[in-house]
Nucleic acid binder design. Structure first.
Length: 406
RNA sequence: GUGGGUGUAGCUCAGUUGGUUAGAGCGCCUGGUUGUGGCCCAGGAGGUCGGGGGUUCAAAUCCCCUCACUCACCCCA
């Protein structure tokens, strides 16, 4: 019986880890460039904390169990509860706005499918303590910055953005009864995917009101959303104005969003959202923290890696070593190891074959290791305290005194 | 959780209407003797044909179950 990786989990061989590290590097760089500080929390949290926000029904999607002390715990499925706790514990002493980011691994017991696994790495960045639309815009800009660092620009991406309050106001103006509002919002959310949604919307609202609503969908009523307009303006100032597309159909399911909500998609629309975020001004308070306005977004590695692959932009694995040291003749194996040690001490990554290897094969191994140069230790040169340095791309060789090797 | 599709070597796949020891390309390993890699040539390792059961003289091939992957739903923090 062969052991296999659990469904929805991944093994990261060097090539796959190189992809992940490349993605994470962009996340870190974009975060720091915008003044976000990295945090992290425990992988395991109390079930109470995790269910406080979304309710008990999400337990079915949690890796939850009782620990040996009888505590109900779960692997973390998201960061917000942890974040809220961390903010609450130090809220008084932290200068506002708080700008934190993290790159944790999350665990969700869901059915694995394209773009969605059970364990994944996700970049989260949050701004806590500011109600300014500029903060919303900056978050979007930071997300786009990271994508740009990976080679994805305005030709590949679009940001669809809405604001819950605008949709609510429109429904209010249309005199949609309060008890129908939630369902109407859910149906707007489904308009794209579900052909039946339109019919049901008409049924619920009546054809006149439904028609008016759909008209607003086609042409976003920005005049009813000064807050969103301010975000768009600030976005323009951050240089991402051309990518922002107001769109009612971005609802982002969650009940706790209170303002702008947005999602980044590939422009071809082949994949699920690459990133999504929004403002949640009441959430931290409701999780037992202080009443602080807040916003944030998440970007997962799974969809992003798929998009990068489709565009031929997957980060490459770095070369294993810069220099490959090859003894010519078994009696120089020790000399090769000494040269390796010397190079490493000088900060140059280097290795030598362990045993006696033919020169031709050793050169092949040097190429396979990604080395830029091979250092040949031959009897003739070594007798004069020199080595032969071969550039593996050009094949050029020159003799270098050992003392000058670096 | 509900449906559809797909499972043959590390990877991409071929495998006739069921019929001998299951194949190819790539990759991997070894060799083509002396101090020069990428190309080429030769050889080799590696598969209980996803797993289990059934039909049959005979199953990679037909049937059932199961697992995994995948696509569409539910959901998407």
């Amino acid at each position: 019986m062969r052991f296999r990786v659990l469904p929805g989990f991944r093994d990261f061989y060097p090539e796959q880890l190189a992809v992940r590290r490349g993605i994470e590097a962009a996340w870190h760089r974009a975060s720091r460039a915008a003044g976000f500080q990295e945090i992290d929390g425990p992988v395991l949290e109390s079930l109470d904390l995790l269910t406080a926000k979304s309710g008990g029904e999400i337990v079915s999607q949690l890796y939850a169990f009782d620990d040996k002390g009888g505590r109900a715990v779960s692997l973390r499925p998201e960061m917000t509860p942890t974040l809220a706790r961390m903010v609450a514990a130090r809220a008084g002493g932290l200068p506002k706005p708080i700008k934190w980011y993290c790159v944790p691994e999350f665990y969700r017991y869901e059915k694995p499918q394209r773009g969605r696994l059970r364990a994944f790495h996700q970049w989260n960045a949050d701004v806590i303590g500011s109600s300014e639309p500029a903060a919303d815009a900056e978050a979007i800009a930071v997300a786009l910055d990271a994508l740009r660092m990976l080679g994805l620009g305005g030709d590949d991406l679009r940001v669809r953005i809405s604001d819950r309050r605008v949709l609510s106001r429109v429904l209010e103006e249309l005199e949609v009864p309060g008890d129908v509002e939630a369902e109407a919002i859910a149906l707007v959310d489904r308009l794209e995917r579900d052909p039946a949604a339109r019919g049901r919307l008409e049924e619920r609202l009546g054809s006149a009101r439904c028609g008016a609503l759909l008209e607003h969908c086609a042409s976003y009523p920005l005049e009813r959303g000064p807050e969103l307009q301010a975000v768009l303006e600030a976005g323009g100032e951050f240089g991402i104005g051309g990518l922002l597309e107001p769109d009612f159909r971005i609802v982002r399911g969650l009940a706790y969003y209170t303002g702008p909500v947005w999602e980044i998609f590939d422009r071809r629309g082949e994949l699920r959202a690459v990133a999504g975020g929004g403002r949640y001004d009441e959430l931290i308070g409701s999780l037992g923290g202080p009443e602080l306005p807040a916003l944030g977004f998440g970007m997962g590695d799974v969809v992003l890696a798929e998009l990068l692959q489709e565009r031929g932009l997957l980060p490459d694995a770095p070369a294993r070593v810069e220099a490959y040291v090859i003894p010519i003749g078994a009696e120089l194996a020790g000399a090769a190891r000494a040269v390796v040690a010397r190079l490493r001490a000088a900060g140059v990554s280097a290795e030598a074959p362990y045993g006696a290897v033919r020169l031709g094969k050793a050169l092949r191994q040097a190429s396979a290791a990604g080395a830029r140069r091979a250092i040949l230790i031959g009897p003739d040169e070594w007798a004069e305290r020199s080595v032969r340095v071969r550039d593996l791309a050009s094949g050029e060789e020159r003799v270098v005194e050992l003392e000058r090797l670096d």
